[in-house]
């Protein structure tokens, strides 16, 4: 509990700063505009800034949830939407949606969902064929992601009029997010967050060992499908509404676990909050440097991933001796 409340405050502050960024408004004016009034300030805050902030927070929370689920269920500290093929599959789906000319974010979410299931399904297949040591599976996941990203790029170039959105899809960005994106995002966010929270106990059990899970009474395969579907759902909706915010889903669960340990009932909401805060912070930096937000998270996340890969490799090899 002790970290949840401070993290809510941190996230709220970051979100407020993000709201102010680029609007050249004093905090007071912005607050006033947020809660009423009219005129250009209200217009800017409510129509332009607020959806951007909300979509970013929502997508970050989704990725935090997805990362927590993937890492505990696959028992792999390196698992995240990026290294499981789920994220790139979802992006591919969303790009397919734009390629066939769908405009509504909802259709994009649905196709992203299908793409995410494709990516996750292939990884599942490979894992069941060859067994799953964490590092080996992560390498396959990276390859799978590279393949799906290649397919995405082919699609983007096949329709040159879409190529302008290339950066958006490949690293993720919050530019031009509208209330429509938010309304496509929030129902899935609620389902994902609530669903994942309700099954946190199962996540904790699955994180130990299949035999252990069966012994205490968890039917492993059905539950694993359920929780992985929640991960695919949250990843896909984030991908469809913001593009690939690279490495947020890897970073947030690690930070959460480092702070509160492995009690998923606390770690999961905390990871969602940290995901949201990370995206808000990245977007603040990104807007000040006119970068895409995903580029910022990619660089920050790469550092964390390197650290974790080293620790995991040391632990695995050490364990085998």
């Amino acid at each position: 509990m002790k970290w949840l409340i401070p993290m809510v405050v941190v996230t709220a502050v970051l979100a407020f700063v993000q709201l102010l960024t680029g609007s050249s408004m004093s905090p007071v004016t912005a607050l006033a505009a947020l809660f009423g009034g009219d005129g250009t300030e209200r217009q800017i805050i409510v129509e332009l800034r607020a959806p951007r902030v909300l979509v970013g927070l929502g997508a970050g929370a989704c990725l935090g949830v997805a990362g927590t689920i993937l890492q505990s269920t696959l028992r792999n500290p390196l698992a995240s939407p990026e290294v499981t093929g789920v994220g790139s599959g979802a992006i591919l789906g969303a790009v397919v949606a734009t390629t066939i000319g769908s405009e509504s974010p909802i259709e994009m979410v649905v196709l992203a969902l299908l793409g995410g299931m494709l990516g996750g399904g292939v990884l599942w297949l490979v894992a069941s064929l060859r067994g799953s040591d964490p590092l080996g599976l992560a390498v396959i996941g990276v390859l799978l992601s590279a393949m799906l990203a290649g397919a995405t790029l082919i699609l983007l170039t096949a329709r040159p009029q879409l190529a302008g959105a290339m950066t958006q899809w490949l690293v993720g960005s919050l530019n031009g997010r509208t209330w429509e994106h938010w309304s496509a995002l929030w129902p899935f966010l609620v389902i994902g967050l609530a669903g994942a929270f309700l099954v946190t106990v199962v996540l904790g059990v699955l994180a130990v060992d299949d035999d252990h899970a069966k012994a205490v009474g968890v039917s492993v395969t059905p539950w694993r499908i359920v929780v992985l579907m929640l991960a695919v759902l949250t990843t896909s909706v984030a991908a469809a509404t913001t593009g690939a915010l690279v490495f947020v889903g890897m970073l947030a669960p690690h930070a959460a676990r480092a702070l509160v340990g492995s009690d998923q009932r606390v770690a999961l909401p905390l990871s969602a909050l940290i995901g949201a805060a990370t995206v808000a912070a990245a977007d603040i930096v990104a807007q000040n440097a006119s970068l895409p937000a995903g580029a910022v998270t990619a660089v920050a996340g790469a550092v964390v991933m390197i650290h974790v890969a080293k620790r995991t490799s040391a632990a695995t090899v050490g364990g085998m001796r």
Partner: peptide, 27 residues
């Protein structure tokens, strides 16, 4: 049993109650 990460003893023992309390009852 493989390493369980940051789990504490009481958290581990609580998992034994899953069969009786169920996923929601354990929340």
């Amino acid at each position: 049993m493989p390493p369980v990460g940051a789990m504490t003893v009481s958290q581990l023992v609580r998992q034994g109650r899953y069969a009786v309390r169920g996923p929601l009852g354990m929340l």
